[in-house]
Amino acid sequence: MNTNSRRIYFAYKKARRKFSLKVYILLAIWLIIALIQWLVVCLIQDIRDVFRKHYYVCIVTFILSILLFSLFLFYERLRYNGAVALVISFIIVELQIISLFTLVSRTHYAELLLYFVICVVLLSLFLIIGSCLPRKMDLTLHIALLFIFAFLFLLVAVFFLMLQLLVSEVWRDINNYSYILIQIPISITMLLFVMYHAQTISGGRFAEMRLHDYCLGSLILFHDFLIIYWLTFYWQLVSGVLTPKDWTPLTTLWDRNDRKQLPVDYSDDSDDILSNTVYRDKEPKITPVTLDESRFGITQDFNDDKGTESLNDPNWKVNWLAQERRYKHGKRPKKAITTKEHQQRLRP
């Protein structure tokens, strides 16, 4: 290598290191801004109540951020001017931060910090691994293989997602941790793309980012972090490792003292809403029904036929009407359902 070529090479390496430094500094700024605002929402009750009630604001900001980010990706002229690119990048990041307020308002600040640190450590670790991989393991050259892995992990995630949504036995058989089967494939896919993006940023590979796209590089890494961090909110709200049991926003979603998780019983044709919900009281609270014979026109013959035990049952009216219909069609009446049997049917 002659002197001129060596000078060009070192100038390129210097420019590439400067570019990487800008990307990672911007990423650190975005993460710090996000953490500060999320902690403010967690710690101030009034702000938390606003975003818990007006969740649609977060949906609107998320859609706007995606549209603006798409424009920023496809129109390169927006990225040529450094000042304009910085302003647009800040707006995109701020919209994404606000879009997460509806989830942040439902979690405890200790859970928020714990999973935030875990995701930052994972992101930093795989950025270092991706940058230090030898040239033989150039992910930018073997991008097709990376997309094949992403496709396979997507198949796994979607399959277990449908099982979790539609097959209630999955929750019971693996102790309510079926969400891991969705989170792990998606997280691995995103961490592989983090390594790919790290190589495009560090340069010296088959494909690399342009030196003026430092804002784009920071936005891509920030969205990689967001996808991994979004998936942790399930554990923040449901598991609550560091959340106090008496913390109100958690008990509205998952009451660990008075409620338990039960499978949905689709065979129940009753009009009771609680009997067809995923979360019900441990013991169904049945309010005794006051017997009013004049209101429903119950005769003494009916009282003598059914006895006092059936009349004291809360479901006596439903049983009586059903048996009356069977009498009209000439069918033999079935045995009245007692309170104990009714409770057993509600239980899993």
Rank of each mutant, 00 (worst) to 15 (best):
F206A: 12
N2M: 02
C215E: 00
L68V: 05
P348V: 11
L250M: 08
N176A: 14
R17W: 14
H197P: 12
G240E: 11
R256M: 00
K245F: 07
R210I: 02
K18M: 02
R332W: 06
Q45H: 14
Y115E: 12
G82A: 03
I337M: 10
V264E: 12
C132H: 11
C132K: 15
L165S: 03
Y177E: 04
V87W: 04
I66F: 00
E208D: 13
L141F: 07
I47M: 06
L113K: 11
I98Q: 14
W171E: 15
E169K: 04
L141R: 08
G130K: 09
V57Y: 09
D271E: 03
R332H: 08
C215L: 01
I298W: 11
Y177R: 07
D224P: 03
D246K: 11
N2A: 04
H223T: 11
E309L: 04
F153G: 08
N257A: 15
D255R: 15
A34C: 15
K53P: 09
L78D: 02
S270M: 01
D292E: 12
N81R: 03
M137Y: 15
D292I: 12
L311Y: 12
N257T: 15
I182S: 07
Y234H: 02
I8E: 02
T61W: 08
A207C: 03
S168V: 14
V40F: 06
K328H: 10
E169A: 12
I180N: 12
Y327T: 07
R7M: 08
L114R: 06
H142D: 04
K285Y: 11
I36C: 05
R332L: 06
S187I: 09
I174A: 06
K18G: 13
K245M: 09
L39V: 12
S89H: 10
I91H: 10
K328W: 09
I29Q: 10
L226V: 06
A336Y: 12
Q183M: 00
V156T: 15
W254V: 06
L64R: 01
S70K: 05
V23W: 00
C132R: 14
K260Y: 09
K306I: 15
L35V: 07
D301M: 02
M195A: 13
I91F: 01
L122H: 06
W30S: 12
E309T: 07
L321A: 04
L231M: 11
F72M: 13
I298P: 13
H212E: 02
I33D: 06
A11E: 03
L181Y: 07
I29S: 05
L242N: 11
T200D: 01
L221G: 02
I66H: 00
A322N: 04
I129G: 11
